[in-house]
Design a protein around this nucleic acid. Structure first.
Lengths: 252, 252
DNA sequence: CAGTGGTCTAGACCACGAC
DNA sequence: TCGTGGTCTAGACCACTGG
């Protein structure tokens, strides 16, 4: 901790704490002073100290939680390759899920819990897959974890006719060779993708599912995959911010 | 507004207000009830009502501001094409800045204020441009506005030797044919790009510059442009969330 | 159980904008 | 000037976690 300051607003207190974290005075994993202690140290009430600490929680710098105290978050950001310009050779070698490959390359342990549902298409899904709203589609929902901690949420939607032709899609288990390769073998090669990115604070549901504080920023990546004829897959992935970096490699 | 609820926590109050906004009971541009009124309506104190309203401000749903009251934000998201697969013909036709083209295509009035600085490379800039830290580089900083409102911040860094060969880079004025085209004419054709995306809450400086509430999510897009030999440009763009959608069109 | 954070109150004062 | 939001206080109670 740096020196005590008199008459500091809670933003200033947050700045001081931010500084301590940035310069390592408060190391990753270290406990953060409690509301009461911060209040005493800066000469403000606990309520005001709380506002400062909440600001840092919101920025993802520290963790919160009733009864648990606060700690400086340890974040080594995961690099997600959204698009790689690489040789076709390498591309087919990376058989399974691209995320699994990325995580393993960075020396960490990926895992996913998969559930499959048949649902009626919402307006968004209908637009993406170019089907009528309310028509049934298949969804593979994945909660993906790294080293046991939730990392991201990934839902893939498929037109029902296509899912029935590629039965592994409807099975709630890992597809070792990857769904994209599997679809290609069934004549649905994806030749073009469109990624749509939106970013906003996490909803309460997302906060709970991803074990992140309320209000932390998330990136919602919607990837539409097209065969030569039509859209064949829509994947919606929710990535919590501040612990992920996304890369797109692009030809000119 | 929907019905009064007793004993609602501020999250529940926020939910109720969110519902009213989503279903148009509170239309875009309409005034939002004050802290006091919300408190009375939901049977809580003004302080608690404030927490609910702050939640909505943080999500970008309503605007805040001392003395001004609150209003439902009117947001028609701007679509930013980060990467387009289009014919080379079309690409050269779109002469100037891609953002200017995007905005004009969506029927709105873009403008940019440009300043040029010569600065010492930070660690990040040095890594991006593959120069030594502390070496001087040229920066074109742009505050870009749409219909007079700040839209995004865009800083382009160039190696000094290159900037001196393309003198328009050092002039704080619009380059009508676009800097990329200009660099090509001087033998620095960009053949490959890498975009790095990070997302997090806005800093106080960004909030002020972009006229957005504290804590709203921003996307920081770092685009590195490479000629056949080396990096020739690093562009850092800060996009406020909830009012922008970013698209990447990708070949398989 | 003690200590922590999470919620809430009732009040206070100030800064700012609109009328 | 009046109503608004922005900040702050001193206290209260509850929920949860850890020793």
């Amino acid at each position: 901790m740096t020196e005590t300051r008199a008459a500091a607003s809670y933003h200033d207190i947050a700045d001081a704490l931010r500084h301590d974290i940035a310069f390592g005075t408060l190391a990753p994993g270290a406990p953060v002073p409690s509301q009461a202690e911060v209040g005493k140290r800066f000469g403000v009430s606990a309520g005001t100290a709380r506002l400062a600490l909440d600001e840092l929680v919101n920025e993802g710098l520290i963790t919160g939680g009733r009864g648990r105290g606060r700690r400086v978050r340890d974040r080594s950001p995961l690099v997600v390759y959204a698009s790689r310009t690489e040789s076709a050779e390498r591309r087919t070698a990376a058989a399974s899920d691209a995320w699994v490959t990325d995580v393993e390359e960075q020396g960490r342990k990926p895992d996913q819990k998969i559930t499959v549902e048949i649902v009626q298409a919402s307006a968004d899904v209908a637009r993406w897959l170019e089907v009528d709203k309310g028509q049934v589609v298949a969804v593979r929902r994945r909660v993906r974890t790294i080293d046991g901690e939730p990392d991201n949420l990934c839902d893939s939607y498929y037109p029902m006719d296509l899912a029935q032709q590629v039965p592994e899609i409807l099975s709630p288990a890992d597809v070792s060779q990857g769904v994209i390769q599997l679809m290609r073998e069934h004549g649905y090669e994806q030749v073009r993708y469109v990624d749509e990115l939106r970013w906003r604070p996490a909803t309460p549901e997302e906060s709970a599912a991803l074990n992140i504080p309320r209000g932390v920023a998330v990136l919602v990546q919607t990837r539409l995959g097209y065969s030569a004829e039509r859209p064949v897959r829509a994947t919606v992935t929710t990535w919590p911010g501040d612990s992920h970096v996304m890369l797109y490699e692009l030809p000119a």
